[in-house]
Design a protein around this nucleic acid. Sequence first.
DNA 1: AAAACTCCCAACCGCGTGCCT
DNA 2: AAGGCACGCGGTTGGGAGTTT
Length: 331
Amino acid sequence: MGRPPCCDKVGVKKGPWTPEEDIIIVSYIQEHGPGNWRSIPTNTGLLRCSKSCRLRWTNYLRPGIKRGNFTDQEEKMIIHLQALLGNRWAAIASYLPQRTDNDIKNYWNTHLKKKLGKIQNSSSEEENHHCSKRLNSSLLPSENAISRGKWERRLQTDIHMAKQALCEALSLDNKSINMPESSSSTNFHSQIFHQQSMLPPPHINHTTSTYTSSAENIARLLPNWIKKPQKPSHKPTNSFKEQFPSPSSEDLENSLLFGFNNSNYSSNSEVSQSVSTETTSLLHDDSKLNIESVQLPPIGYLEKWLLDDATGQEPKEIFMNLSLEGTDGLF
DNA sequence: AAAACTCCCAACCGCGTGCCT
DNA sequence: AAGGCACGCGGTTGGGAGTTT
C-alpha cells in the first residue's frame, strides 16, 4: 500500500539540523516523551517532517547513545551478529544498546566490510577453498537464498557455526567482566544482564569519554534552554558549546546510566531534577522498547546456550522454545 | 598552496508492516 | 475487506573533513 512521501510537502526543511532545532525537539520530547512524531512538527513549529524528527532523535539526540570509537568487543559483536543475523541493523543494535542501527550500519559499511575483505584475502588459498562455502553462508546469509526445504538441515550447521562465532566474542567479554579497566564490555554485559533481570548490574567503572555527543547534548541543551528560552543571540558566540556549557561528565553518567538514585546532577533545582529524571526515564523506556521489539532470541538465550555447554542441551531445544515466527527471518 | 581524491557519517528515500476506521 | 496513517527498517547519498599528490 503506497503512501505519499511525508517530506514532499513544500516548506519542509531538509539537511543538517541546527542546534536550535535540536533544542526544540529535545525539549518537546522531554515534556511529552518520544513517539507521536507527527505531532512534533505541528506542535513545535519545526519545519521538519515527522520522519526527520524521529531519525534525529533516535540517531543523535536520544540519551545513552555512544558515538564513535568502537571497541574491539563491539567490533567483534557486530561482526558475529552480522554473520548471525545479516544486515538486520536494528536487531544488531538491540544487542549493543548504546549504539544506533545507523551507526552500526555505517561502521559496518565503512570499516568492517573492508576489514573482513582483507582478512579473507590474506587467508590461504586452501583455507579459502575450504571455507568459502562457510563464509558465504555465515557472513552473507542475506545473499544466500535458502529454500524452506533445506531449512532444517542448514539450521544445524548454521547454529553450530554461529555458536562458535558468538562463543569467541563472548569469551572475550566474559574475561573482561573481571577486569574493571575494560569498561565497554563490562557496560555491555551489565546492560544485558540488567535487561534480562538475571543479575543486578555490577559496578560499572566507566570512563568519562563514554557519552560525548548525544548525552551531553541532551543534558546540556535542556537546562539552558529552560533558563534562556528562545533568546536570540545578539552577541555572536564562538560555538554552541560556549552557549550551552555542559555539566560534569560524572554527573551526566550518573544521571544517564544509573538513573534515579545516584543523580547528583539533579539535586540543584527542580528544573534540572525533572530534566534529569525525565531524561533517564526516556533512556530506560527506549532500551526497554528496543529489547521488547526484537523478534529474535534474546541474547540471554544465546549466552545461556553458549555458556551452558556442560548441560548438553541441544541448541535446537532452545530454539524450539522460541516462537518460530520470531526466528522466521533468521535463516 | 591548492587541486584532486578518498573517507565518513548524518540524513534522506522508499518500502514493509501494523493499527485504526 | 479496503484504505489511510504512523512508524520502523535498510539502502543510498550528499557534502564536509581529511589526506594525498
